[in-house]
Amino acid sequence: MNDTSKYLTKQVRDLFADPGEIVLVTHVNPDGDAIGTMLGFYWLLKKKGYPVNMIVPNEIPFFLEWLPGYHQIVISEINHDKATALIRNAELLICLDFNESDRLGDLEEEFLKAGATKILIDHHPDPGDFTDHIISFTALGSAAELVYYLAIELGMRELIDKTVAECLFTGIMTDTGCFSFSSSQPETYLVVADLLKTGIDKDRIYMQVYDNYSADRMRLLGYSLNDKMVVLPEYRTAYISLTEKELQKYNHVTGDTEGFVNILFSIKGIRLTALFIEKKDHIKISFRSRGDFHINKFSERHFNGGGHKNAAGGESNLSLEQTIDKFVKLLPGYAKELLSG
């Protein structure tokens, strides 16, 4: 098992022994790992008898609404007053699946000035210094796997029942792309095997997440591949861009473009992919890479982002056209890395 015990100092263990009012928070545009980790940890803490609440900055993808406890999550952009009140009254604030405070969006200011003890539980590289304690394990493919190990270290192993396991399995499955990346450690599969012993139906979970889209989403995918996909074989790169108007045409809802950036790897030889989404005040970017091309460093250097070696996000305040132009013009400088291997 991965050794997470070194992160659990006596002080941290004491916090979990008598935590008081707990609030779990995760990042803007929460994904399957963020929500799966949050809900899994929520149920563990509830089963211990602790008072616990959950907050996300903005909307949760619809394909995660089936997860147990989903409706207990406070969405700040819908109920900001309640979210801020929970943060102000918290005695222990636990950050899950992000490594910088700006990932809290409009909750950042309230979070930073809160008097509660703060703990970061994450697996992304280079965690920022914005909490009192950091539990960071970058070798893991998901925050959900990290919470599994922490549960064992904190004496909660017997509390990992079917409800907890459904949530944690969802986090692990989604953040490893159904075990297609960031999942080379044998221990990950031992964790999954243990979760399966609780009686979860992995096929049902997969269908709820990946086979639960609307006809409009499928048409949007078809349009994206047929009309908006650009392939640059000279840089082993492919990307898709979508405007607000195009998204509206296909009745886009949060989560509809999930996975678009990964589909581009189906093209032979592609090592770098990107998805550019036009928002009201910025361009949201998803990056993926294969092999030793560190897309997190590329995103951090050029697009105010970060993430993992082969999966990262970014943002641009330029127009969509200008953002794509910037991206394409950067590629010659990385040609050697992209074309090697």
Rank of each mutant, 00 (worst) to 15 (best):
R103Y: 14
G291Y: 03
G128Y: 01
L15A: 12
P57G: 04
L264T: 10
F260W: 06
E246G: 05
H27Q: 09
F62G: 11
E59P: 03
S289T: 00
K268Y: 08
I267F: 15
H294E: 13
L159A: 08
T198C: 09
I152P: 14
R288A: 00
H27R: 10
N29E: 04
A144M: 10
L196N: 11
I160L: 04
R204F: 14
L44R: 02
L64I: 14
S316R: 00
Y239L: 02
S5G: 08
G36C: 10
L45D: 04
L318F: 08
D161S: 07
D292R: 13
G305Y: 11
F179Y: 11
F130L: 07
A165G: 10
D194R: 14
T243H: 02
L264S: 10
K82Y: 04
V12A: 07
G105E: 10
V191G: 03
L331E: 01
I55K: 03
V28Q: 13
D203E: 15
A114F: 14
T257E: 04
N251M: 11
A116N: 12
I135W: 03
M156N: 15
L168F: 07
S224Q: 04
R217N: 07
T198V: 11
I240K: 02
V23P: 04
E300S: 15
I324Q: 05
T117E: 10
L242I: 10
N2T: 13
V28T: 13
I78D: 08
E321R: 09
S142P: 11
M207E: 14
T131G: 00
V52C: 12
G69D: 13
N304R: 12
K10P: 10
S266P: 08
L64Y: 14
E244I: 13
A85R: 09
T163R: 08
F260T: 03
I270H: 08
D3V: 03
D292L: 15
W43F: 05
D33K: 01
N262Y: 10
A143R: 05
T131E: 01
I263K: 11
I55F: 06
N304L: 15
Y213I: 09
P186K: 00
A193T: 15
H282R: 12
M38S: 12
F276K: 00
S224K: 04
Y206D: 00
L39Y: 04
E300W: 11
N251Q: 10
M1A: 15
L247D: 05
L45N: 02
K336A: 13
S183V: 02
L86C: 05
S316W: 02
S101L: 12
V25M: 08
D106N: 09
C167N: 13
L86W: 00
S214M: 13
